[in-house]
């Protein structure tokens, strides 16, 4: 297993959820007594997720892929971002996502994805837990832009199938898009990542794009090539088992 295939499985929460879902979904089987997966359950399903960076000059932070319940949502437009999402959108920090309610698995990329390049992670998900899948990654030369596919329904993907999705850039709404020196973690600035202050509209929305100094924002350390347009990433999901 490559390092980038590293998968983090939750402990107790996953056990409980597996138990509940096992009851709900496996009609012919005895309820599991202790293990998260009954010994006679089918082998877990295996998915690979490939993110291709479609931007001109916005590296993407190491991707986060979460498997989650059908009714869990990483965010809802018009509503404030969770702190876990804020950390991802402002600093590329994916660690908080695993604790979000309804998340059963988190797979993380190891390295940033340069413009034009791709990275792949794999997830093995017990069949009863297969439901929603979300992908998120920061556009690092921004204050708080992230590319995402939010809540793809994995159950629609048959064995051997794959699907190409195109990710929009959202604005977490947690940090003003000042583009100012010291405020962005990417190589254009090498500035700050996460900051607990919320000095923007405090609701998730479609990112209006960066302005850059070349387009009249005097304090911006960004230039024309840092601008982006949707879609900003291609996300391929493949089910191989």
């Amino acid at each position: 297993m490559k390092p980038s295939d590293m998968m983090i499985k939750l402990g107790l929460g996953s056990l409980l959820m597996a138990a509940v879902l096992g009851l709900g979904a496996c009609s012919d089987e005895k309820p599991p007594s202790q293990a998260p997966i009954p010994s006679n359950a089918p082998v877990p399903r295996l998915y690979s997720v490939t993110v291709t960076n479609l931007t001109a000059n916005q590296p993407l932070s190491p991707m986060a892929v979460i498997a989650h319940s059908a009714d869990m949502s990483l965010f809802r437009v018009t509503e404030p971002a969770s702190v876990a999402l804020e950390k991802l959108a402002e600093g590329g920090d994916t660690t908080g996502l695993v604790a979000l309610f309804g998340v059963s698995h988190l797979a993380r990329g190891i390295e940033a994805i340069p413009p034009g390049m791709s990275d792949t992670v794999s997830l093995s998900i017990p069949t009863p837990l297969v439901a929603g899948l979300s992908v998120a990654t920061m556009l690092v030369n921004t204050n708080d832009a992230f590319a995402t596919v939010n809540g793809y329904d994995l159950r629609s993907l048959a064995l051997g199938d794959e699907v190409d999705l195109y990710a929009l850039a959202y604005d977490a709404g947690t940090e003003a898009n000042s583009e100012a020196r010291g405020t962005m973690p990417g190589p254009a600035d090498n500035g700050e990542g996460f900051n607990a202050a919320r000095d923007d509209v405090n609701r998730v929305h479609i990112h209006p794009g960066v302005i850059s100094a070349d387009d009249g924002l005097g304090d911006s350390v960004l230039s024309a090539s840092h601008r982006f347009n949707n879609p900003v990433a291609k996300i391929k999901i493949h089910r191989s088992r």
Binding site: N177, I206, H207, G209, I211, L217, N230
Partner: peptide
């Protein structure tokens, strides 16, 4: 105001 009124698509869901 370039910091407020710009948008990228999509604009509505």
């Amino acid at each position: 105001d370039s910091r407020i009124h710009r948008w990228q698509n999509p604009v509505a869901r």
